[in-house]
């Protein structure tokens, strides 16, 4: 089957199951594109997340566009993005259409809340492979500590953490190590 078509199908599937915010989508994309299909390497995927986080717009959309582009060019980037929002948008349309009927459906609320712990597992599992290929040496541990300090202690935006660690990387890996 044509590669772009297979990618579209993969992203339609990802879109249909990404409950729990942008990083749930990141976890699902990682699982499909890096682990299951091997279309991108783990290193490439880390760079994609970093750039998706630093640019405006929904993280799931940014990640899909970038991943699609790196796999098969600009058309693939656009098609992967449309694929990832296809099913969610159709569901949003149905919700808008049957607004009064679905307004307070307790079953749906229970199921969606129940998925959240599952989403935690999905993101954490993607975290293992990201840690594996994101850590190179002892200085990586220092950078992780710096990023965690900026995010958790200083409560600054993730972008500041990414830029600070990038700048330290340039200094240390570019000129010292």
């Amino acid at each position: 089957m044509n590669l772009i078509l297979r990618m579209c199908l993969a992203f339609i599937k990802i879109g249909a199951f990404c409950f729990g915010g942008g990083y749930a989508a990141v976890g699902l994309i990682e699982n499909e594109v890096v682990k299951a299909m091997g279309w991108l390497s783990a290193e490439q995927f880390i760079n994609i997340i970093a750039i998706a986080e630093m640019t405006p717009g929904p993280i799931a959309v940014n990640t899909s566009t970038f991943a699609g582009y790196l796999m098969a060019g600009p058309l693939a980037g656009i098609l992967c993005t449309l694929s990832v929002i296809l099913i969610p948008s159709c569901l949003a349309l149905l919700t808008a259409f049957f607004f009064e009927k679905v307004k307070n459906n307790p079953k749906v609320q229970t199921a969606v809340k129940g998925i959240r712990p599952g989403a935690i597992g999905i993101i954490a599992a993607a975290g293992i492979s990201i840690a594996k290929s994101g850590f190179h040496d002892w200085f990586s541990a220092v950078l992780f500590a710096v990023a965690a300090f900026i995010i958790f202690k200083l409560k600054k935006s993730p972008i500041i953490a990414l830029l600070s660690c990038g700048a330290l990387g340039v200094i240390v890996y570019g000129f010292i190590l």
């Binding site: 290193e43 880390i46 760079n47 997340i49 970093a50 986080e53 975290g127 990201i130 840690a131 290929s133 994101g134 850590f135 190179h136 990586s140 541990a141 950078l143 992780f144 710096v146 990023a147 965690a148 995010i151 993730p158 953490a161 990414l162 600070s164 660690c165 990038g166 700048a167 330290l168 990387g169 340039v170 240390v172 890996y173």
Partner: peptide, 8 residues
């Protein structure tokens, strides 16, 4: 340098 920050 960014890799460990992405993990964070």
């Amino acid at each position: 340098g960014v890799g460990p920050a992405v993990f964070a």
